[in-house]
Design a protein around this nucleic acid. Structure first.
Lengths: 247, 247
DNA sequence: CTAATAGTGTCTATTAGACATTATTGT
DNA sequence: ACAATAATGTCTAATAGACACTATTAG
C-alpha cells in the first residue's frame, strides 16, 4: 500500500523520523455548517453565494477547507467559518454527520464534516444586511434557489436532527433572542416537528425542566402580555424522559 | 490561500480543466469502527494489534486510511475494514462522530471518521480465534490493555451512543445471535445502561413494538424454558416515545 | 363591550416501576 | 418437594393530549 509498510523500524522515534505524510493517500476535507435561526415565524438557514468555481453563483453553506495551520480542531474550523460570515459565535453547535464520496464534488473524492449551529437572528442581522453574498433563507423556500453541491441534503440532515431534539429537549431555544416568551419557543418547536403542540403540555414541560428562568418582565404585542424567560446554560444538556408525540 | 483563487475562469468546465487537487490543503483521513458484540454476559469490542508504527504493539480499532480508489463511500470503507477482520458484514452500522486534531496522531493533523457496528458473536468466532492479532475484549477490562491513539475515547463515545439507543430502541438486538430470548436482549440493554430493567416493563415494550417475532421454539438452560424470538428488519428504525429511566 | 393572546384546571389515556403470583423445567 | 428461571397480574405514579375556562391587555 505504501512504502513505509515494507520497511522495518525498531522504535516509534526512528519511524517518525523517516515518516513523510505525502506518501499516504490524502483527501480534501471541508467543514460546513448549517446555521439556523428563527425569524418572522420561519426557520432560516444562513447561505453564502459562491464567488468562485466550482458551483460559482450558487448558494452554499458557510465553510471551507480544513486548514492544518489555523485550525486546532474540527469544531474550531466550524466556528471560524461562522464568525467570518456573521461576526458572532453561535450559542449552540453540534456535529451532524460526515459525508464523503467521489461524486459530491466535481474536483474528485471529497469529505465534508457537517456541523449545525443555532443563533438568535437579531445578533447577526446588522452584519449580514450589509453584504450581498450572505443571506438568511427560509428552509421552506430553499427549492427556489440553486443550491451548491449536496448542501440541500446536508441542510435536511441538520433540520432532521433539530426536529428530533425538539421532541425531547429545549435545544431549539438557542435559535431565539433572549429573553423570549414561551409562545415563541413553542413556535420554534412546532416549526421543527411540523405539528402544533398543546400550550398546556409545553408549559408543564418548561416547569418540570426547571431550565427556564422567569425574568419578571413581560412583553406585550396583542392580547395579554407574555412572561419573558431566560434559559439556564445547562438547558443544552437537559433531556425529557418522554417525547412529544411526533406525527 | 491557493493559486486557483486568484485566477479568473469563465466557466465551470475551464475551471476544472486547470484544477489540481494537490494545490489544496490535504489531510490524512482514516475510518475506524467500534464493533461491539455480546458474549459471556459481557459487552465486547473488537480490537486489532498494531503490526506497524506508530503505536506498534498496542491494540487499536479496526480501520485504516480512506482509499480514493477502492472506497465508494465512508460507510463502504468501514464495512471493508470490518470484513477484513471478521469475514462478516455487521448487521447494524451507524456513524458516531468525526474527530480531528493536530495531537491525536504523531504523524500530524489527522481526521478519523468513527463508525460503530453490532454483530452476533457466534458469526465471527471461528475466523477470529484462528489469528493472534484480533481479539474480542470486554469493554470493562479495556484499561488492562495498551490502547493506541485516542481509541479508548472513541470506544467510550460509541458505547455511550448505544447506551442512549438502549433507552428508546431495540437496536442492541443486533449484538445477539438470532434467535434469542427476551432475557438475553434485556441483559444487553442492562449492560449498556448500567442498571437493571424490570422484566415486566421490558416484555411490555417488546409487545408494544411489534418488532419481535415469536419463533414458537423454546430454549432451556436452567428453570422454565424461554421463548425464542427473531427481530423484524425494521427493528433498527423503531423508536419508543418514552424512554427507560436512566440512573 | 369584543378580539386577541397568555395562562390554568381538570379529565383521560398511556406506560414505566414495583412487586407479588403463577408457570414450567431439572434434580 | 425445591431451586431456578420465565412469564403474568395488578397497583401506583408520572406525564402528555384534549379542551374548557379564566386572565389581561388594546381598542
Amino acid at each position: 500500500m505504501t512504502r513505509n509498510r515494507l520497511v522495518m523500524f525498531n522504535s516509534e522515534k526512528s519511524f517518525l523520523s523517516k515518516y513523510d505524510a505525502k506518501e499516504f493517500p490524502v483527501m480534501l476535507v471541508t467543514v460546513d455548517t448549517v446555521l439556523l435561526t428563527y425569524h418572522e415565524d420561519q426557520l432560516k438557514v444562513l447561505l453564502v453565494k459562491r464567488a468562485n468555481y466550482p458551483e460559482k453563483g450558487k448558494w452554499g453553506l458557510p465553510g471551507g477547507f480544513l486548514n492544518q495551520q489555523s485550525d486546532d480542531s474540527l469544531e474550531a474550523a466550524a466556528i471560524r467559518s461562522i464568525q467570518l460570515k456573521t461576526s458572532v459565535k453561535p450559542g449552540y453547535m453540534e456535529q451532524v454527520a460526515t459525508v464523503g464520496s467521489e461524486q459530491r464534488d466535481p474536483r474528485g473524492w471529497s469529505v465534508s464534516v457537517v456541523y449545525t449551529a443555532l443563533m438568535p437572528h437579531e445578533q447577526s442581522a446588522f452584519h449580514i444586511e450589509s453584504v450581498e453574498d450572505v443571506r438568511w433563507v427560509s428552509v421552506e423556500t430553499l427549492s427556489t434557489l440553486e443550491i451548491a453541491f449536496d448542501h440541500q441534503e446536508l441542510i435536511s440532515l441538520a433540520v432532521l436532527r433539530h426536529k428530533q431534539k425538539a421532541l425531547y429537549s429545549f435545544v431549539p431555544v438557542f435559535a431565539l433572542t433572549q429573553p423570549f416568551t414561551l409562545t415563541e419557543l413553542r413556535r420554534v418547536h412546532e416549526l421543527l416537528i411540523g405539528k402544533s403542540i398543546q400550550r398546556k403540555s409545553f408549559i408543564r414541560r418548561a416547569e418540570a425542566s426547571e431550565m427556564l428562568v422567569d425574568t419578571g418582565k413581560l412583553r406585550q404585542e396583542r392580547g395579554r402580555p407574555a412572561t419573558l424567560y431566560r434559559a439556564k446554560p445547562k438547558i443544552a444538556d437537559y433531556r425529557f424522559v418522554r417525547n412529544i408525540e411526533a406525527d
